[in-house]
Design a protein around this nucleic acid. Structure first.
Length: 577
RNA sequence: GCCGAGGUAGCUCAGCUGGCUAGAGCGCUGGAUUCAUAACCCGGAGGUCGGGAGUUCAAGUCUCCCCCUCGGCACCA
């Protein structure tokens, strides 16, 4: 076991939303990272879930004649199913309605209040009488201090609210960000935060007084400790989930998506996971995660997360996705893509073509098909297929004996610069893979893996194993025995390199790689039929060239089914109707 | 408005402290090949490096001006 645990989180999603590509993207990215680190052998804890305390949740529940809990159960289930469909592997699907969370969030807030970091102050805001709600300064100003609904002038009102002393932590926070370049990623986001920090920080309200006429929340939500007339703001309570989830000695029951939560119940004390390694989120909520939350943690005397990673957005065919345009890519459409191209293909597209950096990325069907064909069908899929096929054809489906010949210098045979030192090539690919992984450059890491398959393609064209086989068969070979040995060594190297590439591709395409392993008889997973069953050894051992977990001469390698069937670009995009 | 990032081949982008004929991937196109999912491999196509001026022996790479795009601007998940 890697000594340092890896705790990665996504935001917990607002339960009234319908799962769309944004939620799926963030969670898929986190899943790929989690699987990569599990592959390294680390003790990984991956959290996602739903945020359920909000006025609108209560209101929607009443509209549907349900209790807030019933309504939240239903909506939360939508996210759970969406994530199952994408074969995501959270170790916990956490919900803010979880009694454990409610209790601990209250404790954290209470502790902050006790030490004076949360105090009762005056909140001055713009109140829209007709809508019975306060508007933020920005919104109020944009509406010229009139109600956006009725046009009536807004009232400036003052009420008692609790505030968090964010201002106290501005300086120490700024120093922390400056001293830790990896604390906020990507760098452009870090600069933005530092820029805003230079302007100083104001204290932030963290509660709202419960007023007459408010929807009846019952036991829903979290009250301000010691002052039940105030409700803790949802977003501040929600942030606490990252800590509360692992602030327990026992994992509790039913954690992951599958309920059985493989290996979850015997995890023991979860407190070892704090501080989190990475909080992943979309850029809109960076401020809370990079400033407010760390400041709260400082006040609580808890460790700060290692990295706060804010990715950009998906746009659709060049246009922003928005409710008004109604062009959100919702889970239903992604499911269509999963059906036609496999969940692994969707995962691959999200992980390699998504907006991981600071700039937005486009989701277009044409681009999806191009990527699918170039990387998956023509890349690893075709490569595995041609190698498996040749082993089947020339060696009755048994891995041939390489006789220790893992290096080929084709320059001697007149092919300039064509040198293939397979142990070195694969080690370099694994090295690049790990390097990029640690920089959270998931796409780059996967490209390094795919590059190894590309090397195999080049190698096959350069050594022409099929030519050797033909010469032997037709009796035109000058040295049939030598050619047979070369053929065996060439194919061994191809297969072994594909095996090593497949290990690295697993975090993005778990089902397809597991399928490849089954047809090639590779024991990588504890249960070959369960992608979440864990690895029999860490990558360092699994990826050793011709090592303990390498392909063995005589091992049955069948051609297997086609991993990724080439897609027709002319075919119409999946649609909901 | 203020602050920040950026405008490089059809598309997505690399190009650090200035220096040989401006690169990659995809797409497109020519060729070679047949083990493979018409896949793979090799080659090509030539983009005034947003526009203008300047510094320099030499500028996508530095300075100034202009045009355009995008992001952030706080209590919003």
């Amino acid at each position: 076991m890697h000594p340092q645990p890896y705790y990665i989180t996504t935001p917990i999603y607002y339960v009234n939303d319908r799962p769309h590509i944004g939620h799926c993207y963030t969670t898929t990215v986190a899943d790929v990272a989690a699987r990569m680190h599990r592959l390294l052998g680390r003790d990984v804890y991956f959290l996602t879930g739903t945020d359920e305390h909000a006025d609108k949740v209560v209101a929607a529940a009443h509209e549907h004649g349900m209790t807030p809990q019933q309504w939240a159960d239903r909506c939360s289930g939508e996210f759970r199913r969406a994530f199952e469909r994408l074969e995501l592997s959270p170790d916990v699907f956490y919900r803010t309605s979880d009694p454990h969370h409610k209790r601990l969030a209250g404790e954290y807030i209470g502790a902050l209040k006790e030490r004076g970091d949360i105090y009762l102050g005056d909140y001055v805001g713009w109140y829209d009488v007709s809508q019975d709600e306060y508007l933020t300064e920005t919104v109020a100003k944009a509406a010229e201090y009139k109600s956006p609904v009725t046009g009536k002038a807004l009232e400036k009102r003052t009420e008692k609210n609790y505030f968090f002393r964010l201002s106290t932590y501005a300086e120490v926070l700024q120093k922390h960000i400056e001293a830790n370049p990896g604390f906020i990623l990507p760098e452009a986001r870090r600069n933005e935060v530092l820029g805003r920090l230079r302007g100083g920080l104001q204290d932030v309200p963290v509660s709202r007084a419960i007023r007459a006429g408010d929807a009846d929340w019952g036991e829903w939500g979290v009250r301000m400790p010691g002052d039940p007339e105030h409700r803790v703001y949802v977003w501040i309570e929600a942030l606490c989930n990252y800590l509360s989830a692992v602030d327990r000695k026992d994992p509790g029951a039913g954690a992951g998506l599958r309920g059985d939560a493989a290996g979850h119940t015997d995890r023991g004390d979860l407190r070892r996971y704090w501080p989190a390694s990475v909080h992943v989120m979309a850029k809109d909520i960076l401020w809370f995660h990079a400033v407010v939350w760390p400041a709260m943690l400082m006040a609580l005397g808890r460790g700060l997360p290692g990295t706060v990673y804010a990715h950009a957005y998906y746009v659709r065919d060049g246009r922003k996705m928005s409710k008004s345009l109604g062009n959100f890519i919702e889970i239903d459409l992604l499911e269509k893509y999963c059906e036609r191209y496999s969940p692994d293909a969707v995962r691959w597209y999200l992980a390699t073509q998504g907006p991981l950096g600071a700039t937005d990325a486009d989701f277009s069907h044409a681009h999806f098909v191009e990527t699918f064909n170039a990387d998956l069908a023509n890349g690893i899929g075709n490569c595995a297929s041609r190698v498996g096929n040749m082993v089947a054809k020339y060696f009755e489906g048994r891995v041939p004996e390489a006789s220790g010949r893992f290096g080929f210098d084709l320059a001697a045979e007149g092919q300039a610069g064509a040198r293939f030192d397979w142990p070195a090539l694969s080690a370099a690919a694994v090295g690049a893979y790990e390097k990029h992984m640690h920089a959270f450059a998931l796409g780059e890491a996967l490209r390094a893996a795919m590059g190894l398959a590309g090397d195999v393609d080049q190698f096959i064209n350069a050594t022409r194993p099929f030519g050797l086989a033909k010469g032997i068969e037709k009796g035109t070979s000058a040295d049939p025995e030598g050619d047979r040995a070369t053929l065996a060594a060439v194919l061994y190297c191809c297969a072994e390199a594909v095996r090593i590439a497949s290990l690295m591709l697993f975090p993005a395409c778990p089902s397809k790689m597991a399928a490849l392993w089954r047809t090639w008889g590779c024991s990588v997973l504890k249960d070959p039929h369960d992608i979440d069953s864990g690895f029999v050894a860490p990558l360092a051992e699994l990826a050793q060239w011709a090592g303990a977990h390498g392909l063995k001469a005589g091992q049955a390698v069948s051609k297997g089914e086609i991993l990724f069937m080439r897609a027709d670009p002319a075919e119409e995009a999946p649609s909901l109707v």
